[in-house]
């Protein structure tokens, strides 16, 4: 077996909690000994709600945040020390959540895409050729290079952001909620594009999302994060088809669905006082399934 594209071992990040005088009064474990591996060419999904640590993990892989413990092996190389190296940045790139704020409003699409090319010392002629190539890859007309973000729709902006991420021919692309700001029909087209590009360019994706339905369709392997820990992981079909952890069950039970088949797939979560329990309540409740007859859909 070839070595994985990305291997994360016991990764931890704690942030200090400071009181009003700046004195450290404790720590919060944002990421707590997380381990997973992403094989080459795979789409690995990290699912979690706000505060689960999924964005902190992305930032550490990008070298934007220093881990407090553990290792990140990118293509076999430990990036803990050399996270900001040129080589690392060429290998892993990121597409952010909101294309409205991740593109500079005063740069044209072409200029935005050129930023990494300039940083890596490409000549002017070289850059123009590469920009045209990248726009074609994301299925935008070549003259879009002259347009400013405000002249583009949300989906078009996200395509520009994808083109920018691909400028340095990375091997791993971190997608942080790439479609959560988009309409559902636009989302489908962006995901189509990512699947096509992944196939053509042999990309590996780390896909971070809270949208489980999308994850089921896009990611082959999934890790479910809760309070900085991976509580459950495995092939997406089996984790979603037969969730073992209470939190995964609650997440799946909460997804609004549009068909009876999907509804049948959602686990039954016991109600507490007629209400859907919070994650803390449910996990505190343990695996007592006596009251489990009332489904989350309830009355």
């Amino acid at each position: 077996m070839s070595r994985p594209m990305l291997e994360v071992v016991d990764l931890s990040k704690t942030f200090p909690i400071r009181n009003a005088f700046g004195r450290r009064s404790g720590d919060v474990k944002a990421v707590d000994r997380v381990s997973f591996r992403v094989e080459r060419g795979q789409v690995y999904g990290l699912a979690g709600e706000s505060g689960s640590g999924k964005s902190t993990i992305a930032r550490m892989i990008m070298g934007l945040t220093e881990p407090t413990g553990g290792n990140i092996l990118l293509d076999g190389h430990n990036i803990a020390g050399s996270s900001r190296s040129r080589e690392h940045r060429g290998k892993v790139q990121m597409v952010f959540q909101n294309p409205g704020s991740s593109l500079n409003p005063r740069r044209t699409a072409g200029q935005s895409i050129a930023v990494p090319l300039v940083a890596h010392g490409h000549s002017r002629a070289d850059r123009a050729r590469r920009i045209a190539e990248l726009l074609e890859m994301v299925q935008l007309p070549a003259d879009f290079a002259q347009r400013f973000p405000h002249e583009l729709s949300g989906g078009q902006k996200q395509r520009v952001a994808i083109a920018r991420a691909l400028a340095m021919s990375p091997q791993l692309v971190v997608l942080d909620e790439p479609t959560s700001a988009l309409d559902v029909s636009v989302q489908a087209r962006i995901i189509d594009l990512l699947v096509d590009l992944g196939r053509e360019l042999g990309l590996t994706f780390l896909f971070i999302s809270h949208d489980l339905s999308l994850m089921r369709n896009f990611a082959q392997v999934v890790g479910v994060l809760y309070l900085g820990r991976i509580v459950e992981s495995g092939p997406t079909a089996s984790v979603f088809g037969n969730p073992q952890h209470d939190y995964t069950r609650l997440l799946l039970a909460s997804v609004p669905v549009i068909s009876a088949e999907e509804e049948a797939m959602r686990p039954v979560v016991p109600l507490i006082n007629g209400e859907i329990p919070t994650a803390e309540q449910l996990i505190g409740l343990g695996r007592t399934r006596d009251a489990a007859d009332t489904s989350i859909k309830g009355a």
């Binding site: 559902v184 029909s185 189509d192 699947v195 089921r216 369709n217 979603f240 549009i258």
Partner: peptide
């Protein structure tokens, strides 16, 4: 119809890469 088809299903099976 197009709108409903664009919604990802929890059951999977969405045809992707058909841009």
């Amino acid at each position: 119809r197009a709108l409903i088809a664009a919604v990802p299903r929890l059951t999977g099976g969405m045809r992707l890469g058909t841009a």
